[in-house]
Measured scan of single mutants.
Amino acid sequence: QIFVKTLTGKTITLEVEPSDTIENVKAKIQDKEGIPPDQQRLIFAGKQLEDGRTLSDYNIQKESTLHLVL
C-alpha cells in the first residue's frame, strides 16, 4: 500500500502493486475521493509523475507517500 497526502492534509491509503501505472493510481484516487484523474497531479520526491509510467519506474515502494496537487 502507499499513502497519498492531499493539500488539505488528508491522507488516503491505496492498495497498489509496483506494476501499477500512475494512471491506474489516479483512477483509484477517483474511486475513493471522486476527483477526476485529469485534475490530479501526483508528486513524489519533488517530481511530477507521468501517467504512462509505473510506480516501480519511480522507485515508489510500499509505505511511500505521494503528494496530490489539484
Rank of each mutant, 00 (worst) to 15 (best):
Q1K: 13
Q1T: 14
Q1A: 09
Q1D: 05
I2P: 00
I2K: 01
F3R: 06
F3P: 01
V4R: 00
K5N: 06
K5T: 14
T6V: 10
T6D: 06
L7A: 13
T8N: 12
T8Q: 11
T8L: 10
T8V: 08
T8A: 12
T8S: 13
G9I: 02
G9C: 08
K10F: 10
K10M: 09
K10Y: 13
K10H: 12
K10W: 10
T11H: 07
T11G: 03
T11K: 07
T11D: 04
T11S: 07
T11L: 13
I12G: 00
I12N: 01
I12K: 01
I12D: 00
I12H: 03
I12V: 06
T13E: 07
T13H: 07
T13K: 08
L14W: 01
E15I: 14
E15C: 15
V16N: 02
V16P: 02
V16C: 11
E17N: 13
E17T: 10
E17L: 11
P18N: 07
S19E: 10
S19L: 09
S19R: 07
D20H: 06
D20R: 02
D20N: 08
D20L: 05
T21G: 03
T21A: 04
T21L: 11
T21P: 05
T21V: 05
I22W: 02
E23Q: 12
E23G: 13
N24V: 14
V25E: 00
V25F: 03
V25P: 00
V25N: 00
V25W: 01
V25T: 03
V25G: 00
K26Q: 02
K26P: 00
K26M: 06
K26R: 05
K26S: 01
A27M: 15
A27F: 13
K28I: 06
K28Y: 07
K28Q: 10
K28H: 05
I29A: 02
I29T: 01
I29Q: 00
Q30H: 14
Q30K: 11
Q30V: 04
Q30Y: 15
D31P: 02
D31N: 10
D31F: 12
D31W: 09
E33W: 14
E33S: 11
E33I: 14
G34Q: 06
G34H: 07
G34F: 04
G34P: 02
I35V: 08
I35G: 02
I35Y: 13
P36L: 07
P36Y: 05
P36C: 10
P36D: 07
P37N: 07
P37W: 12
D38G: 12
D38T: 11
D38A: 15
Q39S: 09
Q39R: 12
Q39G: 06
Q39P: 02
Q39F: 09
Q40H: 04
Q40S: 04
R41C: 15
R41P: 01
I43D: 04
I43C: 15
F44A: 03
F44H: 06
F44G: 02
A45K: 15
A45F: 10
G46P: 01
G46C: 10
G46L: 04
G46W: 05
G46I: 02
K47I: 14
K47V: 14
Q48S: 11
Q48W: 12
Q48V: 15
L49G: 01
L49I: 04
L49R: 00
L49Q: 00
L49S: 00
L49W: 01
L49E: 00
L49K: 00
E50L: 09
E50P: 03
E50K: 07
E50W: 06
E50N: 07
D51Q: 05
D51S: 08
G52Q: 11
G52L: 08
G52S: 13
G52T: 10
G52C: 12
R53W: 11
R53L: 12
R53G: 06
T54K: 10
L55P: 01
L55M: 06
L55R: 00
L55W: 03
L55I: 10
L55Y: 01
S56D: 08
S56E: 12
S56K: 11
S56N: 09
S56P: 03
S56I: 09
D57W: 12
D57K: 03
D57H: 13
Y58M: 04
Y58E: 03
Y58W: 03
Y58I: 03
Y58T: 02
N59F: 08
I60A: 02
I60R: 01
Q61E: 10
Q61D: 09
Q61K: 12
Q61G: 12
Q61P: 13
K62Q: 14
E63F: 14
E63D: 15
S64G: 06
T65W: 08
T65F: 07
T65H: 15
T65K: 05
T65R: 05
T65I: 12
L66D: 01
L66G: 02
L66N: 01
H67V: 14
H67A: 07
H67G: 05
H67E: 11
H67S: 09
L68D: 00
L68H: 01
L68E: 01
V69G: 06
V69D: 06
V69E: 11
V69M: 13
L70Q: 09
L70C: 13
